[in-house]
């Protein structure tokens, strides 16, 4: 499903963000990507999302060999991946419904289908009664749920989460991770970058630890520390 072969990333300032990474993540897996800030977790997610390109190596996602995807084809590739951010990246002047529907609009979905799918996904994240609220009227956890709803509304096979609980209190964080687990059981591969020890230790899954751009540990049902 997700395969990185000898992937390195050197930024233009000479900084080595990823150093010869080899990872394979199978279909329907839930993986924690852990490591301190600046270890390369976000860079790795960016490369998978094609928000940046590797300096070396090959990335294969499902049926896509990323080095063969032309720039103009990137949007079509991205429709196969849901992305969740620490800062939510919501449209502040649009309602919850509009924020989620936005993702389907750009994919040219017809309006009746948009209504149906947005309704369904908002029920899944528990925000069906907040459909007409503006994001700034909601709590951080609820805003993150909008972000999750938007990421999964077209049922992508892969969900990438970049520190999704970074701005949330422990209870809400736990709520969000439960939601991600629920999405994972619906046959979605989830890769979650985090440095939240409580979550990683509390809900053991496969752990890939990255430090200084290298994979230091890849362990099934591992904890935050070895």
């Amino acid at each position: 499903m997700i395969q990185l072969k000898n992937v390195s990333k050197v930024y233009s300032n000479g900084m080595l963000a990823l150093d010869d990474i080899n990872i394979f993540v199978g279909q329907e897996e839930f993986v924690y990507l852990i490591g301190p800030s600046g270890s390369g977790k976000s860079t790795l997610l960016k490369l998978i999302f094609m928000a940046d390109f590797p300096s070396q190596g090959e990335i294969i996602i499902d049926r896509f060999i990323l080095s063969r995807i032309q720039r103009s084809q990137i949007p079509f590739y991205r429709r196969n991946i849901g992305m969740i951010f620490q800062d939510y990246k919501l449209l502040s002047k649009r309602t919850v419904y509009e924020n989620v529907a936005f993702a389907l609009r750009v994919m040219h979905y017809p309006t009746p289908k948009i209504k149906k799918q947005v309704q369904h996904v908002l029920e899944l994240v528990g925000l069906e009664d907040k459909m007409h609220s503006m994001p700034n009227e909601l709590s951080g956890g609820e805003q993150q749920k909008i972000c999750i709803a938007r990421a999964i509304v077209n049922a992508p096979p892969i969900l990438l989460c970049d520190e999704p609980t970074g701005n949330l209190d422990p209870d809400t964080s736990w709520d969000i991770v439960q939601l991600l687990t629920k999405i994972n059981t619906r046959k979605t591969t989830v890769v979650m970058a985090t440095h939240d020890t409580e979550i990683v230790d509390g809900l053991p899954k496969r752990v890939i630890a990255i430090e200084s751009g290298q994979v230091k540990r890849d362990q099934q049902l591992g904890g935050y520390v070895e």
Partner: peptide, 16 residues
């Protein structure tokens, strides 16, 4: 700009 970034994020083409 924010909206354009979000549009790109969810897979909107430049033409769209």
């Amino acid at each position: 700009q924010d909206e354009i970034s979000v549009m790109k994020l969810v897979g909107a083409t430049n033409r769209f």
